[in-house]
Design a protein around this nucleic acid. Sequence first.
DNA 1: TTGTAAGCGTTATCAC
DNA 2: GTGATAACGCTTACAA
Lengths: 347, 347
Amino acid sequence: MERKPTVTIIDVAQRAGVSPGTVSNALTGKRPVSPETRERIFRAITELGYQPNLVARSLVNRSSKTIGVVAFGLEFYGPSRTLVGIEQQAADLGYSLLLDLLHRPDSKDVEAVLDELIARRVDGIIWAVHEVGDNRSWINERRLHSLPPVIFLTMEPRPGASIVSTDNRTGARLATQHLIDIGRRNIGIICGPSSWWEVRERLAGWSGALGAAGLESSPPLIIEANWTARSGEDAIKTLLERRPNIDAVFACNDQMALGALRYCHANGRRVPDDLSIVGFDNTPESAYFWPALTTVRQHLAELGRVAVNELHRQIERRGQSKYPVPPVSRVLQPELIVRESSGAKPE
Amino acid sequence: MERKPTVTIIDVAQRAGVSPGTVSNALTGKRPVSPETRERIFRAITELGYQPNLVARSLVNRSSKTIGVVAFGLEFYGPSRTLVGIEQQAADLGYSLLLDLLHRPDSKDVEAVLDELIARRVDGIIWAVHEVGDNRSWINERRLHSLPPVIFLTMEPRPGASIVSTDNRTGARLATQHLIDIGRRNIGIICGPSSWWEVRERLAGWSGALGAAGLESSPPLIIEANWTARSGEDAIKTLLERRPNIDAVFACNDQMALGALRYCHANGRRVPDDLSIVGFDNTPESAYFWPALTTVRQHLAELGRVAVNELHRQIERRGQSKYPVPPVSRVLQPELIVRESSGAKPE
DNA sequence: TTGTAAGCGTTATCAC
DNA sequence: GTGATAACGCTTACAA
């Protein structure tokens, strides 16, 4: 097993007739180098085909210019869209991304994942796993203190934790209020699993809007599904059996709304004439459902970008002061997208 | 700016009363360590809260246990699903993932991306960017030789390049043959951009099946769209204006099929009675379209897993022999999923 | 089985 | 502006 000798900064230095330190300076620009030597150095670099070694640089710098992203459910629209935003902003700021996927949102491997990221000396972490059950019980100020800066996506506020999230409660309120505004009075909700914090928030938004309007938001109007179109189909069936007079349904994502739509087609319920349906997420497909889906748009890529920016800020500040960086909290507002399925005339 | 002194392998060694080399051996298991010292070492590790530094290890090992993934279009179903497969298999084999996203499939940043990956000393690369236009013109044996092992996803065969891909041509043939089998005779196709290799393959599968059956596959039956549902809607309109007698359409992805479905609803064309529609990809939603979409399933996660396995093999072999590793080529077969939109009774 | 010491490829400190 | 030289934290001959 042979190895072709790798070209190092030392080889470049020799060829250019300077010292390794000077080559480093020319490369990083951290201190001035005279134009002539600079010129010689870069010629040597191309002649030798020198490839800088970021691993060595990371070692001595104690910083890898890398962000660890821990995510779940990349096969779904939301997480993958957010990841795109993360990657773009990270690239703009000069970071590479180390990607770790959990197989389940409530995976018990958390510590192993964190150890891995620490071992690789990431400069910061973005925790893009939904808050489900007690999967964030590991978070506390002491633990956070032993980690590089971390930004959590969309979770319940916790002391010491920096959070960037969508205002799910407002999103659900928007959707429900819209149904109320167009004259609906018996409004059901198809939830995702109630172990998800986001679901509980959306449920709160729904019942809040109904309560404020003096309308019913009792348990029979609530049904739990599992985010899939299939579960949405089953859910609306149950809902309508329980309460045949329901005239509107708010589904906690577009896929379940799609399932509900399908059920209505198959069973002669006209949407939106007999029943209004509203979704959540604004997936690209939702505009082409039949009828086109009224839904709530989350700014997912923006969420990712903001998270990276906040993380970057924390990384920088951490390097400058020895005092702990105060946690931040940013909330992004979703927006209602009115289409055909609710029955209002889109403007 | 203060730094809390990091615990190194040396500190552990001192505390355990052994040499650093022995600690390393205990950690990696590369050479035997007596049970007693092992015990002492691990106690020291936990007492000190030692965190191994993979950056240092990568430097001396000249291998980072990292795979670079270059991808495009993560907001779409296919790429994100494939990435999940890649991540799972990579994790199983002990690799971390370095993720690089291109903003456009025909991005000109290729060299910058490669340089970045080389600088970080990835052990291998998975190129998950679709083949579009001449965006793979940079690939040649000489260039590949200067890179770590690379696996390309779904592209036209090229000398020296290892490829893992879906058999798009067969997939399209399957879909078209199905339409022929159920009695359709005037079968149009809604393509993605013809600059995409996959599109040209699917087109070839479509026309191949038609030709074999003695049916027409002339240009008026072909229309190019851009993968979006909206473009699918426009495309079928044009197609039907050109050829009102069309009785079936094969759309090159599910989203365009969805757009086509929507057009038919809006214009009183009954699917599948008047017109059969078949898609490609088998997105989770497609089973809940109205009518449920007949489509072609790609094994996307499997594609990613196979790619990682092949890459792993190449990385290993490269380390063992000085001879160049022969490129491999793996083709995965897609499968037809019959639902309602084609008109055949699903079995 | 364990210790010693020489790297791995950079950057940073201190002189000049 | 530039050159020695000592780290950075780990692995691995080579000895013992």
